[in-house]
Amino acid sequence: MFRDIFNLKSVGPLVVIFIILLVLPPIIPRFYTYILAVIFVTALLAMSCNMVVGHGGLFQFHHGAFYGVGAYTVALMLTKTSLPLWTGFIAGPIIAALTGLLIGAFCVRLTRLYFGMLQISLGSLIWAIAFRWYSLTGGDDGIHGIPMPPIISSQNSAYYFTLIIMVICLIILYLIFKSPFGATLQAIRDNPERCEAIGINVKRHQLIAIVIATFFAGIAGVLFVVVESSVFPDLLFWVYSLEIFIMCLLGGWFTFAGPILGAAIMISLRTFVGIYTEYWTLILGVVLILLIFFLPEGVWGFIIEKFGRQTKEAVEGGSK
């Protein structure tokens, strides 16, 4: 099975990239290590979102809610309880997935825009609670200076931890993408009526996809706390969720690896444009418009189309 899925030709470059990322931290300045770690977290988040958006065809408008739930869970467990430190790390994704199950169960009854709207409403509910419940969540200030287990408290160890967890998660996500379940999900995206007709339980598949995606969003939330040692309600706000959605589209939402590229572009834009001007969202808006007009398939989708390498496996399912 593994030989079919990972052929040497495409795995080779990835291993090289991985090794480069492993040896980078002592060489590059600390600031860049930090930025790379943020990109890893965001990339995992965008990948989990794309599993529902790109492969599942659902309007997952408030994915950030689950990210925030994961982050808040681990932050609260580390600061407010005296349970062993690692329980928080396990609880984060599980609570996020449970939230995903609950919200998803409401949402899958609806389709398209109504799905997205109900999700925004439910997600905003979570945001409002985190934003207002000062005694528990610290309200709009959030929680800062969260103590980390000594093993991952230094910047470089946090970097390695994030990198390794992200790589493991991406491999699992890829296996899901290639599994019969992933294929069914993409079939549902392309033609839900026909899938229904041949006996696939469409709603159940969509719900399972949402739960898996929110689980990985929870992992991303935990990693966010590892990198930043803080949480704040902006993570749960709908504007951030739309940014995640855009990362998927920016990179190429019908491809597997696109969202990683989207996240990297987005974080780099924010960081490096932010140094020169406070109007970075203006630049982002202009980039987005250019993208809509010239690269509707996303950057990675464009590269694949243009250079044709590994076209078949990367954009399986084709456009739309």
Binding site: L249, Y279, T281, L282, G285, V286, L288, I289, I292
Partner: peptide
């Protein structure tokens, strides 16, 4: 164009107008 692109355009417009 596809519907999602229209939605995205208005989001881009929001970012630009906000700044």
């Amino acid at each position: 164009r596809e519907h999602l692109m229209l939605l995205l355009f208005t989001f881009a417009l929001m970012l630009i107008l906000g700044d």
